[in-house]
Write a protein that binds this DNA or RNA. Structure first.
Lengths: 192, 192, 192, 192
DNA sequence: TATGAATGAGATTTCATTCAT
DNA sequence: AATGAATGAAATCTCATTCAT
């Protein structure tokens, strides 16, 4: 038969790459960067080990791409409506809940991200992207606290950021036991 | 020279075990459980690889002991004065600062602990000890918030716990840039 | 357009085979038989990896053909004028220079040939053709030395052959530094 | 029992390294750098694959050491008596025969050396050592031809060098058929 | 015929653990 | 008890060859 067109191949590659990325995320999140093996990922993706290397040149590059991709996605989430022009208490609460939802939809990514961030030699790979993301979301809340005439908007935003980090961590560790709704209400009460 | 007594030998053995534990902590914290090698640890401890195995029967048992030991130490810290009978705002702030100091003195341990906690297959090894510790310190703050007539002492303590987790995380990631003092003040303002 | 005739197709196929052979020669010469990959050769030839296999059934067969082809070409060179009826000193020198020119025009082939010849398991593939070629050119010089009344035409031809092998080797290793002309003059002085 | 002394270990290591080097030489000579595998070498040396890496950090480093070691040995051969103060025809012949003997005792090394020299990317690894060796032995014969009042000692030495290279090559390819003695006599007749 | 994705065997390398001394 | 050499399973990665299109 005739060979696939350039377009079909491009399509195929893109789909496969995405598929591998998803499998890799699952495995890395479960076992950590060093604990995960290419074999596990290939099996999870349902492909031969060797094929991994037609798509990603090494385990290292794979994880880098994974993180870069996830952070880009997260950054674009932060551009969404619920984070625009926060002024009211209600909008604040909504933004918070929206953020947590997003996190809950991507726990695998955030688990991996957190693990890597804790290992200096691995974290350095995506420090820049990571800082950009943090600044973006801190900026949003600093602006909010300024509008609310907080005496120290910077510190208040920082604390909120720390709470979000803590929430992320707690929800990764023991999601079932965590009284998420009560805590959110408490946060809103104290911050909004 | 007379041969060492049984006791002296036992003593020596204990010291050595402790020494290995410290070396292991340093290496595990830097490279993660899977990324660390027995060789690295032996070198860090200044002993031969093979000798490791007369003290700890495997890499796995070594981390387990490490975590168990660290959590026990942390639990005993929580028994110290600054955490007794918190009533005043001042005592609350002191307890908080004391806690953070303890953390800052043992960042390697908490870094490792955090990494492991995020990896379900590894976390299961010390779930019990871990939960006991969390309950202990949550208990202290629940009691505090009850005394302060909080409407929801449980949620407030939980949020405080989350803040402490977030602080721990943020200080592990970027200690230099974190405005710790400002944030503590903000916490005290909002909670005490 | 009318479909190509059987003949045209055959023609095309031959041209393509030749093209692949040239690409393969370049790559094999640069990296050796085991160091070269089918991928490299396909890229050099500007065709898809898979297509290689419709022309040559395996990497092994490809080198074999390559060597066979090159030796045949070399053998036919030896049939050319400059090698007929060597009698005079001048004709001897000319034949030598002609030979070296031929070599210099095909250094890639001779580099590969030399590499393979040194590896017994690979050399065996083309031993016959190789010996035929050597005998052909030795014959020419044995005849020459006989005409010149050498006391040991065989040994003298053999030595000349060895010189040619040495020249080939030296010119492959460090062509720029080699004082080729001075050495040829010296050979002529000593042999012609 | 008590552990081995520093000395015993050093001894053991040295012996093993040498043993591996010999096995590696054999395998590399037979299959070429890329054709040889660590597995083959380990088997030839009678040790486990993994142990190779306690002695040589990579396949690449192993060949490098092999070549460096062999060239050093060859260079020190060139310091021996038969090459001192060549003046007489007899001494010249002796030096030649001595040289060829040395080559014949180390054909594996020279086979490997020749193969590597032909592959530019591999040859670069030991260019310096290689050039030093060539200069050393060329120097000896330039001096000889100067003493013999040759009109062009440099070219004559160069030609002799080329002959030696050619001899080496021919003896590697087909030692059994080569009329070595006749050719040596012919060389002596023409050069001494 | 032509493409390059896909396979799978095997290459290089690593490392927890054992062993001889 | 102490050493580090040795093992062997398994990890990362490569590549000749096949296959679906």
């Amino acid at each position: 038969m005739s060979p696939r067109t350039q377009d079909q191949l491009q399509q195929l590659r893109e789909t496969r790459k995405q598929h591998i990325l998803e499998a890799a995320l699952k495995v890395f999140a479960a076992h950590g960067y060093d604990g995960a093996t290419i074999n596990m990922i290939a099996k999870e993706a349902g492909i031969a080990k060797g094929l991994m290397y037609t798509y990603y040149e090494s385990k290292e590059k794979l994880v880098e791409e994974l993180i870069r991709f996830g952070l880009k996605k997260a950054a674009s989430f932060m551009q969404e409506k619920p984070f625009h022009h926060l002024t009211t208490r209600k909008a604040f609460e909504e933004s918070l809940r929206h953020m947590i939802d997003l996190f809950l939809q991507e726990t695998d990514f955030w688990r991996l991200y957190t693990m890597l961030a804790l290992q200096p030699n691995l974290a350095s790979k995506f420090k820049k992207e990571s800082m950009a993301f943090v600044e973006q979301y801190l900026g949003i809340y600093i602006a909010y606290f300024q509008k609310r005439k907080s005496k120290d908007p910077m510190a208040e935003a920082m604390l909120l950021g720390t709470i979000i980090d803590g929430l992320m961590f707690d929800l990764l560790i023991a999601p079932a036991e965590y009284p998420l709704d009560d805590v959110i209400k408490m946060v809103v009460k104290k911050f909004a």
